[in-house]
Amino acid sequence: MAKKKNIIITGANSGIGFAAVKQFLADGFRVVGVDIQTNKMSEFIVNSDFHMAEADLSDVQQAESLMPKLEQSQLIPDILINAAGIREITPVLELSAESFKKVIDINLTAAFILSRDAARLWSKLEKQGCVINIASVSGLMAEPARAAYVSSKHAVIGLTKQLAMEFGSKGIRVNSISPGVIQTELTEEYFQDDEMVQLIKDNHALHTWGQPNDIVSCMKYLASDDAHFITGSNFVIDGGWTAGKKL
């Protein structure tokens, strides 16, 4: 029987990260779910293949301590999914440096630290690996009152390409996924407003929005051997959000 693969998923307590934990467990992976909150993913504790790690990824020390702890626990990852993310809705003129930095710390710096540390471990063990970063269509365009989020997601796509270039010779693949509007806890407020719902529909070529599993399906492909020749790529899954807008 093939050895179970280990997969680390950050942002595992909600949204896309939570959906990914559920799917990869169902697919027979050994999953480590990482989040500052653990209330929702605690339902998976009954599964012996699930391990929970509580961590504030905006804290550099906590982020940098994660990979050594996993190595010590014999949970060396085969795949790393950086899905943790936050966003602000604040006009630039009202946005504090502290708020800007917190978004950058979680969305970008944590992804850098965990990807770097995973690659260090894989290199030491002469092991191939796979990193999947969750970016956003906000990493391809500007959006109202989201300077920190937009900046962080543009940077995540750039980081993905940089890491892919540097790690490719080691057999480490790095790709990103840019979701459009996905119905999660982060966006739920949009769907409480009928005008916003209509606006979301009107701005998607498919006239609808996405669900977390639409993104998880792409994760599964990128984590599989079928994607062995794919690295440095950004997969846009947005229902046509960035294809064009009505004038």
Rank of each mutant, 00 (worst) to 15 (best):
L25C: 09
A26N: 14
D27E: 12
D27C: 10
D27F: 10
G28T: 12
F29W: 11
V32F: 03
V32S: 01
D35S: 09
D35N: 00
T38E: 07
N39M: 09
N39Y: 07
E43D: 10
F44I: 12
I45V: 10
N47D: 13
D49K: 02
D49Q: 06
D49I: 08
E54C: 08
D56T: 02
L57C: 00
Q61E: 13
E64K: 09
E64V: 02
L66R: 02
L66C: 03
M67T: 08
K69H: 05
E71C: 09
L75N: 07
L75P: 01
D78I: 14
D78H: 15
I79Y: 12
I79A: 13
L80T: 11
I81W: 12
N82A: 04
A84D: 00
A84K: 00
A84C: 00
G85P: 02
I86V: 11
R87Q: 14
E88S: 15
E88R: 14
T90K: 15
V92Y: 10
A97I: 14
A97V: 12
A97S: 13
I106E: 00
I106A: 02
A110W: 05
A110E: 01
F112E: 13
I113G: 10
I113Y: 12
I113D: 06
L114P: 00
L114F: 08
S115Y: 08
R116S: 08
A118T: 11
A119D: 06
R120D: 07
R120F: 13
W122D: 14
S123Q: 10
K124F: 09
E126W: 03
E126R: 04
K127L: 04
K127G: 00
Q128L: 03
Q128K: 12
Q128Y: 08
I132A: 00
A135D: 01
S136M: 07
